[in-house]
């Protein structure tokens, strides 16, 4: 069973100040999922259009501390797999500035 105390010390990757409705369940789901990453890991998040997407990136603000891509309704996964392919290609050619985990 995870230790709540330990988890509360984890890096915050999704911050407050967004415009989701009070009581919306989506931000807490995001927070808990991102907690499952190790602190030294970096994520690329592709977000399909919806409340979570439009309400967390009102220009020029963002709630996301990781790389975050705004995508249409249907292609969030395609964007993510494209990013992964690009990452692998750059890694193979040794063009990555620093090591980033996949």
């Amino acid at each position: 069973m995870p230790n709540l105390k330990e988890l509360s010390k984890k890096k915050v990757r999704f911050t407050g100040g967004h415009r989701m409705c009070a009581g919306c369940g989506a931000p807490m789901v995001v927070n808990w999922i991102l907690k499952a990453l190790d602190d030294d890991e970096r994520a690329v998040i592709s977000n399909a259009t919806g409340c979570l997407e439009v309400s967390t990136c009102l220009y020029p603000y963002t709630s996301w501390k990781d790389s975050w891509v705004h995508t249409a309704f249907e292609n969030a996964a395609a964007t993510c797999s494209g990013t992964e392919a690009a990452f692998k290609a750059l890694k193979k050619k040794d063009l990555l500035m620093e090591s980033i985990s996949s």
């Binding site: 409705c21 009581g23 919306c24 369940g25 989506a26 789901v29 999922i33 499952a36 990453l37 409340c51």
Partner: peptide, 21 residues
């Protein structure tokens, strides 16, 4: 989520999420 991140390949999670509105 922790388990899924450690598995290589395509993973999926469906989370029933309240929308009070």
């Amino acid at each position: 989520a922790e388990k899924a991140f450690k598995i290589t390949g395509a993973k999926f999670m469906n989370v029933l999420t309240p929308c009070p509105r």
